[in-house]
Design a protein around this nucleic acid. Sequence first.
DNA 1: GCGACAG
DNA 2: ATCTTGTCGC
Length: 224
Amino acid sequence: MEPIIQHQWNISEIEAIHLQQMLAKKVIKEDQFAKINYVAGVDVAYCKHSDNIVAAIVILEADSLQVVESVTVRDTVDFPYVPGLFSFRELPPIIKAFSQLKTPPQLIVCDGQGIAHPRRFGLASHLGVLFDIPTIGCGKTRLVGEFQEPDLKRGSYSLLMDDGEVIGGVLRTQDNIKPIFVSIGHRISLTSACAWILKLSPKFRLPETTRQADQLVNKVLCNK
DNA sequence: GCGACAG
DNA sequence: ATCTTGTCGC
């Protein structure tokens, strides 16, 4: 798989922000997909003593949640960690990993935000627009926005608000467990995104997609 | 000036 | 993200 949109990654922070503002206009916030048979999980891990990073993509069969394919790519980071410019750090290796993938997914779940972002263009939206594939942003913590604590029951959620608009959902995936931050990435509605995340998280706080990707990425990195 | 700040 | 063991609780 290759991106349908190409752009330079070796750019300044100012240029990165401008690029986000341009591409954010292409994000589609409604359901735009047919049958979803395969769902992809994406994650990246960093080496503690070098600039090495490993990106992993796992493909799960949507009904059984079983892993049917996985790829990993080792790379080096060249962009600093700047809140809001996350995709410019992690997307390069992720895109290389996608080029090695045999099974095209109909949905991608990212470890990070979608439009729940200062310029409404987090990692999940960036990846979704580049490949024009439905994506969901699923973060463990908040980047921007205010919210009320959702009820303690699995499936409960509250809206994540910023500047008067809904930018995501704070979703409880397990009873009495800290909620996660779900947002539209591309070509999916917030309602469908939350429903999918809930379906992908039958037993743990995080969806199986990111759990499998996280497990794989740390196994390959050998950081212990 | 002082916090906040995806991973 | 990474640095890090045991420990409190169901």
